[in-house]
Simulated scan of single mutants.
Amino acid sequence: MTVTWDPQRYVQFGDFRNRPFFDLTARVLADRPASVVDLGCGPGNLTGTLAARWPQARVLGLDSSPEMISAATAAEHPQNLSFSVADVVDWQPAADTDVVVTNAVLQWVPEHRELLPAWLAALRPGAWFAMQVPGNFGAASHVLMREVAESPVWRDRLDGVLRHEDAVGEPADYLEIFLAAGMRADAWETTYQQVLQGPHPVLDWVRGTGLRPVLNALSTDAAAAFEAEYSARLDLAYPQRDFGTVFPFRRIFVVGRKI
């Protein structure tokens, strides 16, 4: 199923969504790469930081969403940065690729664990591959979403729409893939304790990401009814405090350099 993205809603929680990208790319120690790819670049705001970090490099941002690429190309960006619509499933690194960054994208690609070995094998010695995926599919935010979707009211309309707890692997799974492909690799996980503001902040958060398939599959009225039921469960799982709502978010990182 094709997911329609809203670039403005996606960047609503910019500070929280951006931090894993910078934690990931800080471990990419490429000196003067000539060709850099941001695979699944979204609205391109973070891709721009790669162009600024490596001004001598050709930086290419790729995303399957025309809405995201439209937002990226409309924004002001340096001359060494370009964007294009492309599907991750059909992509292969060019022979001269020095750095590949893919941030919070591969969880949307069910076969990504089968694609990774071919991508890594295509890289030349010295090239870097850095990936980050959310590791929170067992968190209440996702479990409750699936429970509502699987309830009698919604089951027929949402069957097969949502990803399940096997959408991503564990750090050790990815580390093994990288090492088997001839990479010197580092894998780790971080759980960010995010403090969100507003009356229903977790619902607002997932509206920009995990809830998109549901919103795409339902009519406007049905989506509102689903959100009301789901939001009531979220409010119990993530209670609001005087200082805000704590929303733990686990993420999985892997960075490797081809030997």
Rank of each mutant, 00 (worst) to 15 (best):
residue 67 E to C: 07
residue 20 P to F: 03
residue 143 V to L: 10
residue 242 D to K: 13
residue 148 V to Q: 03
residue 222 A to K: 10
residue 105 V to S: 13
residue 8 Q to T: 15
residue 114 E to W: 05
residue 38 D to F: 00
residue 30 A to N: 02
residue 149 A to H: 04
residue 220 T to N: 05
residue 87 D to G: 10
residue 199 P to E: 15
residue 33 P to H: 06
residue 105 V to I: 05
residue 9 R to M: 07
residue 205 W to D: 08
residue 18 N to R: 11
residue 120 L to Q: 10
residue 237 A to I: 05
residue 91 W to G: 08
residue 103 N to D: 05
residue 183 M to D: 02
residue 254 V to R: 03
residue 134 P to R: 06
residue 148 V to E: 05
residue 134 P to T: 08
residue 77 H to V: 13
residue 116 L to I: 03
residue 140 A to Y: 05
residue 45 N to C: 05
residue 99 V to E: 07
residue 114 E to P: 10
residue 2 T to C: 09
residue 119 W to Q: 06
residue 133 V to C: 06
residue 239 P to Q: 05
residue 139 A to L: 04
residue 119 W to Y: 01
residue 23 D to Y: 00
residue 146 R to E: 06
residue 259 I to R: 01
residue 11 V to L: 15
residue 170 E to R: 12
residue 173 D to E: 07
residue 240 Q to C: 14
residue 33 P to F: 04
residue 238 Y to G: 08
residue 37 V to Y: 00
residue 183 M to T: 09
residue 202 V to Q: 07
residue 184 R to Q: 11
residue 229 E to W: 05
residue 110 P to T: 09
residue 60 L to Q: 11
residue 218 L to A: 08
residue 236 L to K: 09
residue 227 E to I: 02
residue 232 A to K: 01
residue 125 P to I: 01
residue 250 R to P: 11
residue 86 A to D: 15
residue 231 S to Y: 00
residue 165 E to Q: 15
residue 172 A to N: 15
residue 22 F to N: 06
residue 77 H to E: 10
residue 20 P to K: 05
residue 21 F to L: 09
residue 122 A to Y: 04
residue 32 R to S: 12
residue 10 Y to D: 00
residue 40 G to N: 04
residue 13 F to E: 02
residue 178 F to D: 08
residue 19 R to S: 12
residue 74 A to Y: 11
residue 26 A to H: 07
residue 52 A to M: 09
residue 189 E to M: 08
residue 237 A to N: 01
residue 156 D to S: 14
residue 59 V to P: 09
residue 117 P to T: 09
residue 179 L to E: 15
residue 151 S to N: 02
residue 199 P to C: 07
residue 157 R to V: 11
residue 15 D to R: 13
residue 46 L to M: 02
residue 193 Q to E: 11
residue 152 P to H: 07
residue 228 A to T: 15
residue 156 D to F: 00
residue 49 T to Q: 04
residue 177 I to P: 03
residue 96 D to R: 15
residue 31 D to N: 09
residue 189 E to K: 04
residue 184 R to K: 10
residue 168 V to D: 12
residue 90 D to L: 07
residue 37 V to G: 08
residue 31 D to K: 11
residue 31 D to A: 12
residue 214 V to P: 10
residue 99 V to Q: 14
residue 218 L to D: 03
residue 122 A to T: 04
residue 98 D to L: 04
residue 3 V to A: 09
residue 198 G to K: 11
residue 210 G to V: 13
residue 232 A to F: 00
residue 258 K to G: 01
residue 54 W to P: 08
residue 232 A to H: 01
residue 257 R to P: 00
residue 53 R to C: 04
residue 123 L to T: 11
residue 186 D to A: 02
residue 231 S to C: 04
residue 99 V to I: 13
residue 174 Y to G: 06
residue 80 N to E: 11
residue 50 L to N: 12
residue 183 M to A: 03
residue 246 V to E: 03
residue 3 V to S: 00
residue 30 A to V: 06
residue 8 Q to L: 15
residue 197 Q to P: 14
residue 186 D to I: 08
residue 24 L to Y: 00
residue 205 W to T: 08
residue 193 Q to F: 02
residue 136 N to V: 09
residue 111 E to W: 07
residue 256 G to E: 01
residue 41 C to A: 00
residue 131 M to T: 06
residue 39 L to R: 10
residue 210 G to L: 13
residue 25 T to C: 05
residue 192 Y to P: 13
residue 208 G to W: 01
residue 33 P to S: 04
residue 164 H to V: 14
residue 209 T to Y: 00
residue 95 A to F: 13
residue 2 T to A: 10
residue 48 G to W: 00
residue 154 W to T: 06
residue 208 G to L: 02
residue 233 R to L: 08
residue 210 G to C: 12
residue 135 G to Y: 01
residue 98 D to W: 03
